[in-house]
């Protein structure tokens, strides 16, 4: 019986990883860069939630909207100020810049809010008792909302004109330009979407543990990166599958005492294993090298 509740927890944790992994994978697919500051957008979102649920207005729903808005603006600014001037630069330069942005965001958060963890309680949840099974309401909400967001994103990317442009840029930037697609604009939209998803993920992170500190985004960010690589970086359905697998594996590891303290190690062992066995990930395509 408890396997089912672990599974539900795993699925909901997986939905959080998937939301974050989508930001990594979309930016990688379209801008061809690893945005290692992506996890820290979650942290920024959590502080916006802290300010607007605990300090002023005290309306969690409005706070969530403001967190999404704030993260979208942040993502767009980071892209325009830090990454755009490096378009065409060696990928190592871009990677180091991304790590720099990550440190910058953490340090600014530390300056404003100090390192002391802050309590952020948005809602009071009750557990549901069902046939002797205890299910956390927040897990169900995370799972359902996460699924709705991912379905909406899939429809948007595959059916809308902007989504089609994103797929075109991710496959062949030059050919996309020949179609009249503004590549820079498409990249900005991708950063905006990724950051909005990170803001939603920050809400769910605070469901799991209602405290935040300047390093809140670091661990889930890096785990979501593992999820993106596992699913095949650049692939949207891959990020979703990778996230869910990672969430389930982690929750089952935490369930057994002899494995619990190794749960992070297991996650990173998966990364090493994927890179050894199938570097392109579950749904990743082999890169067509042009000769």
């Amino acid at each position: 019986m408890s396997i089912i509740s672990t599974l539900i927890n795993g699925l909901s944790m997986g939905a959080v990883y998937a939301l974050i992994a989508l930001g990594y994978t979309m930016v990688y697919g379209i801008a061809k860069m690893l945005n290692f500051a992506h996890g820290d957008v979650i942290m920024v979102g959590s502080y916006v939630l802290f300010v607007f649920t605990m300090k002023s207005i005290k309306n969690p729903f409005l706070a969530i909207l403001l967190a999404i808005l704030f993260c979208v603006i942040l993502g767009v600014l980071v892209e325009c100020i830090a990454y755009r001037p490096l378009r065409g630069a060696p990928s190592l330069a871009v990677l180091i810049t991304a790590i720099g942005v990550s440190f910058l965001l953490q340090s600014v958060a530390q300056l404003i809010f100090t390192v002391t963890p802050k309590q952020v309680t948005m809602f009071q949840f009750n557990s549901i008792e069902f046939n002797g099974l205890t299910i956390k309401t927040e897990s169900i909400i995370t799972l359902v909302v996460g699924m709705i967001v991912m379905i909406a994103l899939t429809v948007f990317v595959n059916k809308s004109k902007t989504g089609r442009a994103m797929l075109a840029v991710s496959e062949d930037r030059g050919a996309a330009q020949l179609m009249g697609i503004n590549v820079n604009r498409t990249i900005v939209i991708t950063f905006a979407i990724g950051s909005a998803l990170a803001a939603v993920a920050s809400v769910f992170m605070l469901f799991i543990a209602p405290v935040t500190d300047p390093t809140l985004g670091a661990m889930p960010g890096i785990k979501a990166f593992v999820a993106a690589v596992l699913g095949g970086i650049g692939s949207i359905p891959g990020a979703m599958i990778g996230g869910v697998i990672l969430g389930i594996v982690e929750q089952f590891a935490l369930k057994y005492e002899f494995l619990a303290s190794y749960s992070d190690a297991i996650v990173f062992a998966i990364l090493i294993l994927v890179l050894l066995v199938k570097p392109s990930g579950i749904l990743g395509k082999k890169r067509h090298e042009k000769v």
């Binding site: 004109k161 089609r164 442009a165 797929l167 075109a168 496959e171 062949d172 009249g180 697609i181």
Partner: peptide
């Protein structure tokens, strides 16, 4: 665009 359908490729031609 190899990973898109023929129809989507044509629609991208009409992007502007």
């Amino acid at each position: 665009f190899q990973n898109l359908s023929v129809y989507d490729n044509l629609l991208l031609g009409a992007y502007t």
